[in-house]
């Protein structure tokens, strides 16, 4: 079997569903339901996804036109960034190199950065199609810069500074994720209307964005212990929820990008 065929099988919906179910049942029922948190395994799984994202990045795509290529490069670049952030989260938490709170908040900001990346990729197409000025894309880049700087600041700040952080700051971060997430969904719906080549991709990208927002919500609750205080849901379970959502979102995106590998019509002859 060719290596590329083997990789494609790894990235098939069936393999990814099986992988996600394995994670879910193993995390919930193995080692009293806390083993995956205690050992850092829940975070370490992100490494597997980074490998899968890399496979997607180096896949052969049927199209090579400048607009679709640029869109794909931006989207896959930010997808890889998100994967790496979670590998960083694993090493940071498991080896206690970085403050726990800082890592949780960094992960939340990483979702904001990813969603902004999705919007920038889409806007790069809309700018050409609608012959728009660079104003909106520049604004998105400005928010992106703020998000990236936020991650850096969090990781170099002292534990005391993070502990004393006003509650409205993470809440603002999460609110921005919701707002930009809604915009990303609207833009993904718009692009599939303009360019039907994105239709199948959008069927996976839209639920993935929703799941990422839910992941950010869980991370936000984890940092505020809200679910523990209000619904008596443990921080471990909260962490698991966040990761189930995230792995499901990663899987959907991997399938979605796969749909762009060989779209229908004339691309089927490539």
């Amino acid at each position: 079997m060719k290596i590329s065929t083997f990789f494609e099988k790894l990235l098939s919906p069936y393999s990814l569903i099986a992988f996600n179910l394995t994670i879910f049942f193993s995390a919930e029922f193995f080692g009293g339901g806390t083993y995956f948190e205690e050992t850092g395994l829940m975070h370490a799984i992100a490494i597997v996804f980074v490998v899968l994202i890399l496979i997607r990045i180096f896949s052969e795509y049927a199209f090579s036109d400048h607009i679709l290529r640029r869109f794909l490069k931006i989207q896959l670049g930010f997808f890889l960034f998100l994967g790496f952030v979670h590998v960083y989260e694993y090493f940071g938490l498991h080896y206690s190199l970085i403050d726990h709170e800082a890592i949780e908040l960094s992960a939340m900001l990483a979702y904001l950065v990813w969603i902004l990346g999705v919007l920038i990729g889409l806007e790069s197409v809309f700018r050409i199609y609608y012959k728009k000025s660079a104003a909106l894309i520049a604004t998105l880049y400005a928010f992106l810069l703020v998000g990236v700087l936020g991650i850096i600041v969090l990781n170099v700040s002292s534990h005391e500074l993070i502990e004393e952080m006003e509650e409205w700051i993470p809440l603002t971060g999460f609110s921005l994720i919701v707002v930009f997430g809604a915009l990303a969904i609207a833009s993904t719906r718009k692009i599939r209307k303009i360019m039907p080549v994105f239709k199948e991709y959008s069927h996976y990208a839209i639920p993935a964005i929703i799941l990422m927002v839910l992941t950010a919500l869980s991370e936000y609750f984890e940092s505020t212990h809200y679910l523990l205080d209000v619904l008596d849901i443990t921080d471990t379970q909260n962490l698991y929820f966040a990761h189930y959502f995230m792995f499901a979102a990663f899987s959907l995106l991997l399938i979605g990008f796969g749909k762009l590998k060989k779209p229908k019509g004339i691309y089927a002859d490539m």
Binding site: P196, V197, P263, K264, I266, Y267
Partner: peptide, 9 residues
């Protein structure tokens, strides 16, 4: 013709 709706043939 829309690219995804027609085959090359």
């Amino acid at each position: 013709m829309v690219k995804v709706n027609y085959s090359m043939q």
